[in-house]
Amino acid sequence: MTRTIFPYAAPDVSTLARALGRELEAQDRKLGHVQLLNLLTRAAGFRNFQHFRAQFDAADELQRQPEPEPVADLQKVARVARYFDGAGGLTRWPKKASHRVLCLWVLWSRVPAGQEMSEKPFNEWLAAHHGFGDHALLRRELCDHGLMTRTRDGRVYRRIEQKPPPEAVALIRALAPRRAA
């Protein structure tokens, strides 16, 4: 039989001491294990040990339940997809910041994972994936948004592995057929 450990905490130790003192003074005999548990939990503000345990079990159950997956805004994904041409290349830089971030996630998804690239090959790679001629902007934005890292001297670039937000995942999936064609 496994024993469950219940962390015990009282909001105010002074109130706890006074409550314990009153309860112990009222007793005329030595208390058993269950009576001591009830005494301690009443002093902490619970009705009895069963109430304390039920509160702990309920909080534990709530923590174990997975949070629902956030849902992607598909209208936003459709709007951002318009920034990409039929081949999946980025045609222009969006004015809206939230659209720019999603475009960066698409570029991030195409950067080879776990591979270091020096500045010149990375610039060439970026130039092949956009059509508005500003690879320096894209390179800087990828690093500023924490999607890429670069050495202090800017010579080596590497993709930072992380989970994209739901809209980015939906956009990457929506643009995948364009790249395959």
Results as ranks from 00 to 15, higher is better:
6 F>K: 07
6 F>N: 03
6 F>A: 01
8 Y>G: 03
8 Y>V: 07
9 A>Q: 09
11 P>D: 11
13 V>S: 10
15 T>E: 07
15 T>F: 01
17 A>F: 06
17 A>Y: 03
18 R>C: 01
22 R>H: 04
28 D>I: 10
29 R>F: 05
33 H>Y: 00
36 L>N: 04
36 L>W: 04
37 L>D: 03
37 L>H: 04
38 N>V: 03
39 L>V: 06
40 L>C: 04
40 L>P: 00
41 T>R: 05
43 A>H: 09
43 A>S: 15
45 G>V: 11
45 G>T: 11
49 F>K: 14
51 H>W: 05
51 H>G: 14
52 F>M: 09
58 A>L: 15
59 A>I: 11
59 A>N: 06
60 D>A: 11
64 R>H: 09
65 Q>R: 15
69 E>I: 12
69 E>W: 06
72 A>M: 13
76 K>D: 00
78 A>H: 14
78 A>Q: 15
78 A>T: 13
78 A>D: 14
79 R>F: 08
80 V>T: 07
81 A>S: 10
81 A>I: 06
82 R>F: 04
83 Y>E: 09
85 D>F: 12
86 G>F: 02
88 G>D: 05
89 G>A: 14
90 L>N: 09
90 L>P: 10
92 R>H: 12
94 P>V: 12
95 K>T: 10
95 K>E: 09
95 K>I: 05
97 A>M: 08
98 S>M: 09
99 H>Y: 08
100 R>D: 06
101 V>K: 05
102 L>R: 09
102 L>W: 09
105 W>A: 04
107 L>Q: 00
107 L>F: 00
108 W>C: 02
108 W>D: 01
109 S>H: 10
109 S>P: 06
109 S>V: 08
111 V>D: 03
112 P>N: 14
114 G>N: 10
119 E>R: 15
120 K>G: 09
121 P>T: 13
123 N>L: 15
124 E>F: 09
125 W>S: 13
126 L>Q: 08
127 A>I: 10
128 A>H: 08
129 H>L: 09
129 H>Y: 06
130 H>I: 08
131 G>W: 00
133 G>C: 01
133 G>N: 12
136 A>M: 12
138 L>Y: 08
140 R>E: 07
141 E>Y: 13
141 E>W: 12
143 C>S: 15
143 C>V: 15
144 D>M: 13
144 D>C: 14
145 H>F: 14
146 G>T: 11
148 M>V: 02
152 R>I: 11
153 D>F: 02
153 D>M: 08
153 D>R: 14
154 G>K: 12
154 G>V: 11
157 Y>D: 02
159 R>M: 03
160 I>F: 03
160 I>N: 04
161 E>K: 11
161 E>F: 02
163 K>T: 12
163 K>V: 06
164 P>Y: 00
164 P>I: 00
165 P>W: 04
167 E>I: 05
167 E>P: 09
167 E>A: 07
169 V>D: 01
170 A>N: 03
174 A>H: 01
177 P>G: 05
179 R>D: 02
179 R>G: 02
180 A>P: 05
181 A>C: 02
181 A>H: 04
